[in-house]
């Protein structure tokens, strides 16, 4: 994964609650065996509607997606994260994320910014009113800033995830450094545990 320090830019306000991963990337798109090519699948069922917020010209080039509460609930499909990133978003903001989605974000360097319900609403309104509004998500300081609104809030990001984001580190490589610990755990596993072979 690529290192990520700061995400700065305009945002798309997706003003709905409970946007599940079936909406983010419908199941037809899950048949691909590649990790790329999902940008067109992002919200594909809604994008047919020319009025869908992502289709509006004033939001072209946005790098941040702002959703309502319970964003990314449902299926574990990591394709949802890939689609959001490949479309061009580097951060997602919501008052509450589906837990597997949020975890998948941490594996791909997509910054999931959880804000209070009030801040979430304020952002959705402000961006709808002014699509040029600039937002800054700072991974190092763990803050979301919107200077035009005089808004600065901090968001939660664990030390370990922050460390990986800032350095672009692969989880697997880190775990493999603990091969000895894994080996010794394995030798102590009870003999009655099943094997698939």
């Amino acid at each position: 994964m690529e290192p990520v320090h700061i995400v700065q830019g305009t945002a798309v306000p997706l003003d709905r609650s409970d946007v599940d991963t079936d909406q983010i990337i419908p199941s037809d798109w899950l048949k691909r065996v590649e990790r790329t090519g999902f940008d067109k699948g992002l919200f594909s069922e809604w994008r047919d509607d020319p009025d869908f917020v992502m289709n509006r010209e004033e939001h072209a080039g946005a790098s941040i997606l702002v959703g309502g509460p319970n964003f990314g609930t449902g299926s574990s499909r990591e394709h949802a994260v890939w689609a959001i990133q490949q479309y061009g978003f580097a951060a997602v903001i919501s008052p509450r994320f589906g837990p597997i989605f949020k975890n998948n974000c941490t594996k791909n360097g997509l910054v999931a910014v959880e804000v209070s319900a009030d801040v979430g609403e304020q952002l959705l309104e402000a961006i709808a009113a002014d699509p040029t509004l600039e937002l800054t998500v700072d991974v190092e300081r763990r803050t979301l800033e919107v200077p035009a609104l005089e808004l600065e809030v901090s968001f939660e990001l664990s030390d370990s995830v922050q460390h990986r984001f800032l350095n672009g580190l692969d989880d697997i490589g880190l775990t493999m450094q603990h091969d000895d610990a894994i080996g010794s755990f394995e030798s102590g596993r009870p003999g009655f545990k099943p094997a698939t072979t």
């Binding site: 574990s76 499909r77 394709h79 994260v81 597997i100 998948n104 594996k107 989880d171 697997i172 775990t175």
Partner: peptide, 20 residues
């Protein structure tokens, strides 16, 4: 529990998962 594809790869490679 359910995991994403990056975690599938992690489990295949290490038989473990970091979990908060």
């Amino acid at each position: 529990f359910g995991i994403g594809t990056s975690e599938v790869e992690h489990v295949l490679a290490t038989q473990t998962l970091p979990q908060p």
